[in-house]
Write a protein that binds this DNA or RNA. Sequence first.
DNA 1: CTGTATCCACCGGGATACTG
DNA 2: CAGTATCCCGGTGGATACAG
Lengths: 135, 135
Amino acid sequence: MKGKPVRRGVVFKSAEGHASNAELDALVLDVLGRVADKWTMCVLEVLAQNGVLRFTRVGELVGSISQRMLTKTLRDMEADGLVLRTVYPEVPPRVEYSLTEMGTSLCAAFCGVWEWAEKHEPELRALRLKRDARD
Amino acid sequence: MKGKPVRRGVVFKSAEGHASNAELDALVLDVLGRVADKWTMCVLEVLAQNGVLRFTRVGELVGSISQRMLTKTLRDMEADGLVLRTVYPEVPPRVEYSLTEMGTSLCAAFCGVWEWAEKHEPELRALRLKRDARD
DNA sequence: CTGTATCCACCGGGATACTG
DNA sequence: CAGTATCCCGGTGGATACAG
């Protein structure tokens, strides 16, 4: 599984020491499955753009997320070492969120996907329209 | 996508003509929400590595996917213009799948995420172990 | 302000059986 | 071989109410 001269340097594996197909599953299910969801990507972007943010502000910037999902997403990201959560013992309480190094690097990794989405969104919308017209 | 001197070239938006936060939602929900799921990424990888594949072979290479999800994923990808589906009118039937240009480019976009996952997987596993120990 | 706690609807996704 | 058709369960995620 190496000889393949896949066009355009697309495939990242296929070098010898790299992940086998068995490990591919583990990687996807364990890592990507927990880190590559919609809300995580949004929070990542928002924090990367704005630096340090309070709970409510993150929600505002993400836009359509519910409080429940915002809490859950931030908690999970904290547990996975993607965000840093700082609680100030004041009243009313103040909590600030920021990206860790790992969070920042993940955001960078998603950069290509954001660009792809932005670039191909019109194309996808066109396809969807034709489909809807057919049905 | 160049203006903002965000550290380490992480953020891709925030240039003037780029997506606002309102559009961010649209992009995520409409495009990424349908294209960035676990199985799509796996199928994308498998097809990028192996070129043209038959239905069953795709399933084998992905590994843990159920037939139901394989069918659904391939159908959705076809509808979104990511894969090309070719049916040969034979008996027994033969159907071949391959990536379109757009599918290939999406796979390339995910490359960074795969690399991130592979690189940080040990780090994430370590965190998870500490967490499990605490509970 | 920053959450937690419920209730609940929806659908992702596995197992299984059947078809052309 | 390449699917389609069901059943069914658990998790996602919204709405709402309450708490420190």
